[in-house]
Computed example of a mutant assay.
Amino acid sequence: MKEVILSLITGIIVGFLFALLKLPIPAPPALAGVTGIVGVYLGFKLFQMVAPMFTK
């Protein structure tokens, strides 16, 4: 949980600095883009769970 909180704090700081410097956001600007990133992560974790079934 500590990693999640530190990641969120770091993201907020980076987002704030990018806005302050008037730079484009370094992440998808829409909820659909963020959801896609979460989907990629979940797919990766799913593969890690099912991969041992195929390597026996």
Rank of each mutant, 00 (worst) to 15 (best):
S7F: 14
I9H: 01
G11W: 06
I12P: 03
I12V: 15
I12Y: 12
I13P: 09
I13H: 08
G15F: 05
F16D: 06
L17R: 05
F18M: 08
A19Q: 10
A19H: 04
L20G: 02
L21W: 14
L21Y: 14
K22H: 15
L23H: 07
L23T: 03
P24G: 10
P24Y: 12
P24C: 09
P24K: 12
I25E: 04
I25S: 00
I25G: 01
P26L: 10
P28V: 08
P28W: 01
P29N: 13
L31R: 08
L31S: 08
L31Q: 09
A32N: 09
A32S: 14
A32W: 07
G33K: 11
G33E: 07
T35M: 14
T35F: 13
G36R: 09
I37N: 08
I37V: 15
V40P: 10
V40E: 05
V40D: 05
V40W: 14
Y41L: 15
Y41I: 14
G43V: 04
G43N: 11
F44A: 12
F44V: 12
L46F: 13
L46Q: 04
L46N: 00
F47Y: 15
F47P: 00
Q48D: 07
Q48N: 10
Q48F: 00
Q48K: 06
V50G: 01
V50L: 07
V50K: 04
A51D: 03
A51K: 06
A51S: 10
P52C: 00
F54T: 03
F54N: 04
